[in-house]
């Protein structure tokens, strides 16, 4: 059972969190999005070995944040809120 540091609530059990995908998988917002670009956004996962930034939601407070976590050792380097000062 891993401990994840929610930037708002502190360290909590992993069972309280929901995985939100790789960090940096930005939704293509331009008018014309190619099929390749869109399918890459939808389905392409890096499955990175080692330190890997990912997005998680802390289900109990409802906040999304970035978690930097080693997928090999499960060590956690840290987490950060995705908005500055609580605002986008």
């Amino acid at each position: 059972m891993q401990l994840f540091p929610c930037p708002f609530c502190g360290p909590r059990s992993e069972a309280e969190f929901h995985f939100g995908g790789d960090a940096g998988n930005v939704r293509p917002d331009e008018d014309e999005v190619s099929a390749d670009r869109w399918s890459s956004y939808l389905y392409m996962r890096h499955n990175q070995k080692g330190m890997s930034p990912s997005i998680w939601m802390h289900m109990t407070c409802g906040e999304l944040f970035q978690l930097d976590r080693d997928t090999l050792t499960h060590s956690v380097a840290g987490s950060k809120a995705l908005t500055e000062g609580g605002h986008r």
Binding site: M57, M59, G62, L64, T83, G86, H87
Partner: peptide, 15 residues
């Protein structure tokens, strides 16, 4: 609810 919250935080102004 989780879906709404996710897109709210991703694309909208929480204020």
């Amino acid at each position: 609810y989780a879906m709404l919250e996710e897109w709210r935080q991703d694309r909208f102004d929480r204020r």
